[in-house]
């Protein structure tokens, strides 16, 4: 870059070209990322509605949060969601990655098949599971045929059963996604460690815990954060399983469902929705900061 060719004209072009190249992305950055972030921060202190500009209302939206029982329900659902998903989606995909790691015949087929739920949309997955879990669906039907249940379990109409059904399909859909991340990390676990452990007489289970797990420790941390954050952001699964209602009395809603609820129509309140968005940001940033801190400690 220090070698000047075609002096005057070339130099100007050379200085402009980089900007020309980044211009579209920079525009998107400003219009669809930076500006909406700032706007959210401002709107949270107003009572803007879909059909009115709204004006500054101080902390009113945040005071409203304090006695919003739907919000309390949503946060409780989110915490349960996160606490159940976390251990399951950190451990199971690792076991799965170890299972598909060795390139035995047909393994590409299995890897692709295990990844299928990831590429399907959450709506498709939730519709499939609504059918499986409905009162007259396959799961209730089989359970009754086998005598496990007397009557159908109300998977889609009971608050906690709804939450757990949504967790089940989140886990089912997430397995392949995290498996692939682990698979990529397993390539870096040093073979010599496995060999040394085997020479010392460690069996497969022992080697898994004392070689594989420490070897992918950083990936586990990363996945813990990804799982926590996406659990806090859950929307489509609960929305479709409950057919947009959020379950009986709207008690199986998530925080993002509340944001969507206030985004339009009769309930429309952009100010309150923005305040809820800030809350979402605050609770999702927690796990990320924790990761950054742990990573710094490790290095």
């Amino acid at each position: 870059m220090t070698v000047p060719v075609l002096p005057a004209q070339g130099a100007l072009r050379r200085r402009l070209t980089p900007w020309l190249l980044v211009a579209p992305a920079a525009l998107w950055l400003l219009v669809f990322n930076v500006w909406p972030s700032l706007n959210t921060l401002v709107l949270a202190f107003t009572n803007a509605k879909p059909l009115s500009g709204g004006h500054f209302t101080g902390l009113a939206n945040f005071e409203r949060m304090l006695d919003d029982s739907q919000l309390v329900d949503a946060l409780l659902n989110s915490i349960v969601f996160m606490l159940v998903c976390l251990p399951v989606l950190v451990l199971l995909p690792l076991l799965l990655a170890v299972l598909v790691e060795k390139k035995i015949p047909g393994i590409t087929f299995f890897r692709t098949a295990f990844y299928t739920p990831v590429v399907a949309s959450a709506v498709v997955v939730a519709l499939i599971w609504s059918w499986l879990l409905s009162d007259r669906g396959l799961i209730n039907g089989l359970a009754q045929a086998l005598g496990v249940l007397q009557g159908p379990l109300p998977f889609l109409t009971d608050r906690w059963l709804l939450v757990f059904s949504a967790i089940t399909l989140t886990v089912w859909k997430g397995l392949g996604y995290y498996m692939i991340i682990y698979l990529s990390a397993l390539g870096n676990v040093r073979r010599e460690l496995h060999e040394a452990a085997a020479v010392d007489g460690a069996g497969p289970v022992r080697r898994f815990w004392s070689v594989t797990v420490p070897g992918v420790r950083n990936t586990m941390l990363l996945i813990s954060v990804l799982v926590s954050v996406s659990a806090l952001r859950v929307f489509s699964e609960l929305y479709v399983l409950s057919n947009g209602t959020g379950g009986p009395g709207g008690r199986a809603m998530s925080l993002v469902m509340l944001i969507q609820l206030y985004s339009r129509g009769f309930y429309g309140h952009f100010g309150y929705a923005s305040a809820l968005s800030l809350l979402l940001f605050v609770i999702t940033i927690g796990p990320m900061l924790l990761l950054a801190r742990l990573n710094r400690k490790a290095s």
Binding site: L29, V31, P36, S37, T40, V256, S263, F281
Partner: peptide
């Protein structure tokens, strides 16, 4: 500066800005 801004969007879940995004 641009790189820092690009990177900082990664910690921002899309749902957080979705209302303002819609207004835009």
């Amino acid at each position: 500066l641009l790189l820092v801004l690009f990177l900082s969007t990664l910690v921002l879940p899309g749902e957080v800005t979705i209302i303002s995004q819609f207004l835009t």
